[in-house]
Design a binder for these strands. Structure first.
Length: 192
DNA sequence: TTCGAGATCGGA
DNA sequence: CCGATCTCGAAT
């Protein structure tokens, strides 16, 4: 079951500093239709640092990043995987949170079918895996999370600060010193 | 980033 | 021996 509509995050949530949003998204839920789970790993990207696609300005590829907060940014990586991000900060500023892993909650059979594997920890434990499990693709680029087919839903209770760990981002070659990756501590569904 | 193939490791 | 773990290349 998809969470209640009034729990859906809108532009207000995303119109804040991207690092703050990345931390606060841990514990929220990402759904596409009846399929989704709890966000357990995120990374922040900002136009001011060279690991961000927006670093070189609004090029054709990065154009979406400069749109209004709460818009989906989906791009194709390694010619194989779609990676799902949420645009943050005011329109005109290039910033986004990459969703890197989910703990599967709903539609697990569907996820297993789409992924072609059984183990729960293999379904959404990486940015390319979760888009496959949730059937998120390039067609969802620029969709509006507040009302489009893909939605993010508010976390239930407050998470203790210490339950969220920050560390350097993975899979990048520049600005590797920034601790802009956020994980739910001790959760077994984060990427490797 | 992800996957599978092939190599290697290590317990029994 | 068998599974678990690693390393490497390929997919655009």
């Amino acid at each position: 079951m998809t969470p209640a509509p009034d729990e859906r995050l809108d532009a207000t949530f995303f119109d804040r500093p991207v690092v703050e949003v990345a931390r606060d998204l841990v514990g929220c839920s990402l759904y596409h239709g009846g399929v989704g789970g709890i966000v357990v790993e995120t990374e922040a990207y900002h136009e001011s640092e060279p690991a961000c696609h927006a670093y070189s300005g609004p090029t054709p590829r990065a154009r979406t990043l400069f749109r209004e907060p709460g818009v989906a940014y989906v791009y194709f990586s390694y010619g194989v995987h779609s990676l799902f991000n949420v645009v943050c900060e005011p329109a005109g500023t290039g910033a986004a949170v990459l969703i890197r892993a989910l703990e599967p909650v709903a539609g697990v059979r569907t996820m297993r079918r789409r992924r072609g594997r059984d183990r729960l920890t293999d379904l959404c434990s990486g940015p390319g895996k979760l888009t496959q499990a949730l059937a998120i693709g390039l067609t969802h680029n620029e969709s509006t999370l507040a009302r489009g087919p893909i939605g993010i839903y508010r976390a239930h209770g407050d998470l203790e600060d210490r339950a969220i760990e920050s560390s350097p981002r993975v899979g990048i070659t520049r600005a590797t010193e920034l601790p802009w990756r956020f994980c739910l501590a001790g959760n077994g569904f984060v990427s490797r």
